[in-house]
Amino acid sequence: MPAENRLIIWGRPNSVNVQKVLWCLDELDLDFERIDAGMQFGRNTEADYLAMNPNGRIPTLVDGDFVLWESNAIMRYLCLAHGGDTPLYPPMPRHRAAVERWLDWTLSTVQPVERPLFWGLVRTPPAQRDMVALQRSADEAAATWRILDTHLATRPYVEAESFTLADIALGAYARRWFGVEGVAKPELPNMTRWYQQIEQRAGFVRHIAPPLS
């Protein structure tokens, strides 16, 4: 892709929603530029950023004169606009809808139970952690992850025989689940097998595997 047409991603690299998009870009072998924004980098509350994304959140994609926010929407767009016939976002309606439900489930169900656990164990100083509350959060998250574990008992990937956007979306959050320490977590054998498979992918290694922060 010529430099003047390079895709631009606004967002910090330790944001799980930015990581999803970076992993997708890697899977599609797309050239891009990333600009730090959010938390310690700021920028996302400035007028020029809010003109692109009035939510003041990350990531935001700029593709020429087209601007898009919401990480799952960005991944779908990248597949449709730049992915050719990529299997990441299958064309058949039933297969695509099956992938879509997991993208929705990631944000509607996984993120709400993952966030307090991650922030409490990774972004809160040890002396300020309420470990009793965090164990309750871990138990709630485990109940959600058991749904995926049961689903994965009969298939190698989240939806279908091949790797899709569903694996990217859930894999980024699974990195946090498997990576946090200090709480009791149940054995999830099917999810563990799936995770050990996807963590070998180059995009995961580059964008998801770095230490949690």
Score class of each variant (00 low, 15 high):
residue 89 Y to M: 04
residue 90 P to R: 08
residue 91 P to A: 07
residue 91 P to N: 02
residue 92 M to K: 13
residue 94 R to M: 14
residue 94 R to E: 14
residue 95 H to L: 07
residue 98 A to P: 02
residue 99 V to M: 07
residue 99 V to K: 07
residue 100 E to R: 06
residue 100 E to F: 02
residue 101 R to I: 06
residue 102 W to K: 11
residue 102 W to M: 12
residue 103 L to Y: 12
residue 103 L to Q: 15
residue 103 L to F: 10
residue 105 W to Q: 10
residue 105 W to Y: 10
residue 106 T to L: 15
residue 107 L to R: 12
residue 107 L to G: 13
residue 108 S to A: 15
residue 109 T to R: 09
residue 109 T to Q: 11
residue 109 T to C: 06
residue 109 T to A: 11
residue 110 V to M: 12
residue 111 Q to W: 09
residue 111 Q to A: 15
residue 112 P to S: 10
residue 112 P to N: 13
residue 113 V to A: 02
residue 113 V to T: 08
residue 114 E to R: 12
residue 114 E to G: 11
residue 117 L to C: 02
residue 117 L to N: 04
residue 117 L to K: 02
residue 118 F to I: 09
residue 120 G to W: 07
residue 121 L to W: 09
residue 122 V to K: 03
residue 122 V to E: 06
residue 122 V to S: 03
residue 123 R to C: 11
residue 123 R to V: 09
residue 125 P to A: 00
residue 126 P to A: 12
residue 126 P to H: 06
residue 126 P to K: 09
residue 127 A to L: 00
residue 127 A to I: 00
residue 130 D to T: 02
residue 130 D to N: 05
residue 132 V to I: 03
residue 133 A to K: 07
residue 134 L to Q: 04
residue 136 R to C: 08
residue 138 A to L: 02
residue 138 A to S: 08
residue 140 E to N: 08
residue 140 E to A: 15
residue 143 A to E: 11
residue 144 T to S: 14
residue 144 T to M: 10
residue 146 R to V: 14
residue 146 R to L: 12
residue 148 L to E: 10
residue 150 T to A: 05
residue 150 T to Y: 04
residue 153 A to I: 08
residue 154 T to V: 02
residue 154 T to M: 00
residue 157 Y to T: 05
residue 158 V to P: 06
residue 160 A to V: 01
residue 160 A to R: 10
residue 160 A to N: 09
residue 161 E to T: 12
residue 163 F to R: 03
residue 164 T to D: 07
residue 164 T to L: 04
residue 165 L to Q: 07
residue 165 L to N: 07
residue 165 L to Y: 15
residue 167 D to R: 07
residue 168 I to Y: 02
residue 169 A to T: 15
residue 169 A to M: 07
